[in-house]
């Protein structure tokens, strides 16, 4: 009997609404950590795919979370809630609904750009297997340059060395691949909760 073939990949799915959001929520310091990490995920996406605020707002509309992220100002204020942002100090208090929205948007966009993310990770695997540095591949070199520039432009100074920044960028890249799956939003949310008690670089 010929099996029915299911060639669908993650791209044919849409991330379902989060299911882990009923868990106990972190306290203020832990929520700061979550703000930082969501902002870093979006920073990684921006660096790899060059997407801008327009794409994020379209994602918000597609996901029906315009109430949380209705315009560029609202998006900016949410991202400025990251306490590591230069000069912001977490001025906007990020509530849990807004965090949900940003998680959904991040994974929606990761899903939209899964091909690019996968290409970058595959390239990283090949270079590493050949003992070559990531900068030697254009897709990774561009990504690392842009990530470093955006990070240094937006975040507080003297937080991470260049090597640390590269390690962080590659870790975020690999994580993005798993966030681009149908289970991505849930994976990200649970990871955020788990990491909320740990220190972020």
């Amino acid at each position: 009997m010929e099996p029915s073939r299911s060639t669908q990949t993650a791209r044919t799915f849409r991330s379902p609404p989060l299911t882990g959001l009923q868990d106990p929520l972190p306290d203020g310091a832990q929520l700061d950590n979550i703000k930082t990490q969501i902002d870093l995920v979006l920073l990684s996406l921006e660096s790899l795919t060059h997407l801008g605020s327009e794409a994020m707002l379209q994602a918000a509309e597609a996901l029906g979370v315009q109430e949380m992220v209705g315009d560029r100002v609202a998006l900016w204020r949410l991202r400025q809630s990251n306490p590591m942002r230069r000069g912001s100090g977490g001025r906007k208090k990020l509530d849990i609904e807004e965090a949900r929205s940003l998680v959904l948007m991040s994974c929606y966009l990761a899903q939209e750009h899964q091909d690019t993310i996968r290409d970058a990770v595959t390239c990283l695997e090949e270079l590493t297997a050949q003992n070559r540095r990531p900068y030697q591949a254009p897709i990774l070199g561009d990504y690392l340059d842009r990530f470093t520039n955006l990070y240094q432009e937006r975040m507080e100074e003297d937080v991470l060395s260049t090597q640390d920044l590269m390690t962080l960028a590659l870790r975020l890249l690999v994580d993005l691949l798993f966030y681009s799956a149908p289970q991505g939003a849930r994976r990200l949310w649970l990871a955020l909760l788990d990491r909320a008690t740990t220190k972020v670089p």
Binding site: Q37, L40, L124, T128, P134, D164, T167, L168, L170, R171, L172, D175, F178, R187, L188, L190, A191, D194, R195, T198, K199, V200, P201
Partner: peptide, 18 residues
Amino acid sequence: YIQTVLALPLEQSSLELD
């Protein structure tokens, strides 16, 4: 396993390239 790895701190040393 995937969830555990994703939840590791971003600076986790065991997840370096090599």
